[in-house]
Amino acid sequence: MKFKRRIIDKIELDRILKRMANEVIERNKDYEDLYIVGIHTRGVPLAKRVASYIEEFEDVELQVGALDVTLYRDDLNNIEHQPKIKDSILRFDIEGKKILLVDDVLNTGRTVRAALNALIDYGRPRSIQLMVVVDRGNRELPIQADYVGKKVPTSHNEVIRLYLSDYDEKEEVDIFETEK
């Protein structure tokens, strides 16, 4: 995999997350019923980050959960390595609640589809909103994000990787090209 360029640096990423947190505040007048759920792996620290900004701006406390969608993937027969599954941690009842799903990159929409199914198996939320840092285009399913950090049109042989200080040594979003 070949590094092509950095598309979002640390400062810009922080701005994007803060902006999206404000958008969430604008759209959801009250927070009592709002639960934030990150999709494993990078969606989980992102969800925590966004939640902490909302908490800071509005002086509230939010519930954050983690969702692993591996067991709901539609491509299990084609993936070449054994998928690692993590425990989904939803320490709250999602029945009748507003859920904000958070992930790093939106591309084909299949991960989000899996996440929607996974979530619904835990209960019937009142609504589900979607937040992504990067929207790559290339949609294969009719799914759109409610909050988008940055639109970056890409081709299929490109890979976008988000680094977060919670996991990595740096904090930025890079674009790579896969070698054929």
Binding site: L71, Y72, Q82, I85, K86, D87, N117, D121, Y122, G123
Partner: peptide, 23 residues
Amino acid sequence: ETIFETTQVMKSIIKRDYKKIPT
């Protein structure tokens, strides 16, 4: 060890109300 870790995930699934997954 991998089997144990996966078992833990499965155990939390069979403890929820809706116990089936489409995997």
